[in-house]
């Protein structure tokens, strides 16, 4: 039995890779071939779909829009969450437990509940159809998550370090940026990864809050699927391209993801 234990993860990874392989397979086929029937490999290998995506502004601007609001959101979430996580980890203050719980409830709030009121709120703020609106809206679930993960990592740093720094005459801001942030560097990296991840994969709010100017790639894909017939090859190529940024970030945090998923609390 021990000799066959590699079989379980191997089968699982094959199960994971098959749909991705199929998407790749489709993305290199011509529309005619796709509709022609079942085949394991593209008979006429073509990169037409990819060329279309990189030359048609409605397509590639979708990617740019997505990356802009995801980046904005990651920066906002991490920089706002850092001091808050420090406060939750180091101090007791009036209402701290209630506040922490309330923050967490927002991570658990179904986006579907907020879709319509968000549309009205951001229209009233005249932010509708801007990258900023989506970045701010995604803070709803990303800031609580960031606070939660960072709090776990910060609690792993002994508070003697803080005290020693104060005795050495460091002011709080200088201590925080010069000594503390490098110490929890991997925690900040993991948190940024999670903010990136959840903002990147979310579609409902991103789609609701944008129309033309800040339309995310995901929404461009949905529109293509519904209006311009059934351009499966194009859809598959766009799908493949959305997997790539994720794959790149995973590679960078591969040694920390397991701990990060456990929210720094193992």
């Amino acid at each position: 039995m021990t000799r066959l234990r590699w079989l379980v993860p191997t089968l699982y990874i094959i199960f994971l890779m098959l749909p991705i392989y199929w998407l790749l397979n489709m993305s290199f086929k011509t529309t005619n071939e796709i509709l022609g029937g079942f085949s394991w490999f593209p008979a006429e290998f073509t990169i037409e779909s990819y060329v279309k995506i990189f030359t048609d502004p409605t397509w590639y601007s979708g990617y740019i829009n997505s990356i802009i609001y995801v980046g904005l959101n990651t920066v906002i979430s991490v920089s706002f969450a850092l001091p808050a996580a420090y406060a939750f980890s180091r101090y007791r203050f009036v209402g701290d437990k209630h506040l922490f719980f309330w923050l967490l409830t927002n991570r658990m709030a179904p986006p579907a509940v907020f879709a319509l009121p968000f549309l009205q709120l951001y229209s009233a703020l005249e932010l509708f159809d801007t990258h900023f609106a989506v970045a701010l809206a995604h803070c709803l679930f990303n800031i609580p998550l960031a606070v939660w993960i960072l709090e776990g990592f910060i609690s792993g740093v002994p508070r003697e370090i803080d005290e020693t720094a104060y005795l050495d005459g460091y002011s709080f801001p200088r201590f925080f940026t010069k000594i503390f942030m490098p110490l929890i560097g991997s925690g900040i990296g993991v948190t940024a990864f999670f903010c990136f991840m959840f903002s990147w994969v979310e579609l409902l709010l991103a789609k609701t809050l944008t129309s033309v100017e800040a339309k995310p790639i995901a929404a461009v894909m949905t529109r293509t699927a519904s209006t311009s017939g059934y351009e499966l090859g194009l859809l598959a190529a766009a799908g493949v391209l959305t997997i790539i940024p994720g794959a790149i970030v995973i590679y960078f945090v591969r040694n920390y993801i397991a701990k990060g998923f456990a929210m720094g609390r193992v």
Partner: peptide, 25 residues
């Protein structure tokens, strides 16, 4: 490391792409 990276991949795919991918699949 190989296992972790490959296994984490589905988690980083936008949710509608997951739907579209499974539709095609």
């Amino acid at each position: 490391s190989v296992c972790l990276v490959l296994m984490a991949l589905p988690l980083l795919i936008p949710w509608n792409v997951v739907g579209a991918m499974w539709n095609i699949y």
